[in-house]
């Protein structure tokens, strides 16, 4: 771990103001020399590995009072970004009205980590790609742009098949982001250039030719809240996570599914996939394939096939295409069969 200045911020403004000094060539928030510290479960982990080397760390945990509220409004749910994963997962109203959110969070990490990690930081957690995390590998375009990608021909069982490029196949590791993706959430930001709101779907960037740029956040931009509309599909939603062991493991494949049914026909389907893609992956082709149909083995499988039509496997992760399809199929059938309270 490299030496850094440590400061604690008492409010958004003072936290953001620390970036006034920043004159370096930081290209996005993830690579900025100043980093916000909330739960620390990604940042401290990666600082110990010498992957992240901020020169200044701003502890924003004191912002929990201001930015940590969970509010229900007429038009939906507002989740303060400093709410901890466990607070949201354990919230009875969220469990009932936005089950995909509560389930995605409950299935993530461990009880301790869920107590620590703020949901704003959680969506920014970084890939588990071993070649990214171990700095003794020279080739990682995400860590050292232009150096190559050791994963392409390496051990890549856990790597992505969707949203990949010839520069990077690192999987986005999280679960909660898929729930926000499926529910069309909006992200409230505050930063050196003021406040703005963006669709959650535009927060993460596919690797393409610049895998080092992971998000659309600029240095100093702070996620302050997520807004989720009270859409009709929110109640009939679930998160399915498939993994080698029963708990405390990243997904091999996951599906966040939300359905609005007219009797049993799909009025609207919202689908996001995890464990198989480089970013939280919205499966619009699958959604379109379901529209107007009754969900059964055949239609669910057809939608799943559509979701993975463009998948690109590597040596050890080809199974993720079949697994991803089956995971989505299972999730759709399960969601269609849900008893939904009115």
């Amino acid at each position: 771990m490299r030496p850094f200045e440590f400061e604690r911020a008492s409010d958004n403004q003072s936290a953001i103001a620390t970036f006034n000094d920043l004159r370096s060539a930081d290209i996005d928030a993830v690579n900025a020399q100043i980093q916000y510290l909330a739960g620390g479960t990604t940042l401290i982990d990666l600082m110990k590995l010498d992957v992240m080397k901020p020169t200044k760390v701003i502890d924003i945990n004191a912002l929990q009072q201001a930015n940590g509220n969970i509010e229900f409004k007429n038009n939906g749910l507002r989740l303060g970004a400093m709410a901890r994963m466990s607070q949201v997962a354990d919230h009875a109203d969220i469990q009932q009205n936005y089950p995909v959110i509560a389930q995605a969070l409950r299935l993530a990490a461990s009880a301790q980590i869920r107590n620590m990690a703020a949901i704003g930081g959680n969506v920014l957690q970084r890939t588990r790609c071993t070649y990214f995390r171990d700095t003794s590998y020279a080739n990682c375009n995400k860590r050292a742009p232009g150096s190559g990608c050791a994963a392409l021909e390496g051990v890549n069982r856990s790597h992505a098949v969707l949203g990949v490029s010839d520069q990077c196949i690192a999987t986005y590791p999280g679960d909660f982001a898929q729930a926000l993706m499926a529910l069309d959430a909006q992200v409230e930001l505050d930063g050196p250039r003021g406040k703005r709101t963006i669709p959650f779907a535009s927060l993460h960037k596919k690797p393409d030719q610049t895998p080092n740029i992971e998000t659309s956040l600029t240095p100093g931009e702070l996620i302050t809240a997520f807004n989720v509309a009270a859409a009709p599909y929110a109640k009939r939603s679930l998160f399915l996570k498939v993994r080698d062991r029963e708990s405390y493991e990243f997904a091999l494949a996951s599906a966040a599914v939300a359905l609005d049914l007219d009797n049993s026909n799909v009025r609207q389907a919202r689908i996001a996939l995890g464990g198989v893609a480089t970013v939280p992956w919205r499966a619009k082709e699958a959604e379109a394939a379901l529209a107007g149909n009754k969900i059964d083995d055949v239609t669910a499988k057809r939608a799943a096939d559509a979701a993975f039509a463009d998948a690109k496997p590597r040596e050890h992760n080809a199974f993720k295409i079949e697994l991803g399809k089956r995971t989505l199929t299972r999730a759709l059938l399960q969601a269609a069969a849900m008893e939904v309270p009115t």
Binding site: T130, E246, S247, E249
Partner: peptide
């Protein structure tokens, strides 16, 4: 490559 306890799987309580 999986030289850590998040990637080298051993059973958890569940």
């Amino acid at each position: 490559v999986n030289d850590n306890l998040a990637d080298y799987m051993i059973p958890v309580n569940a």
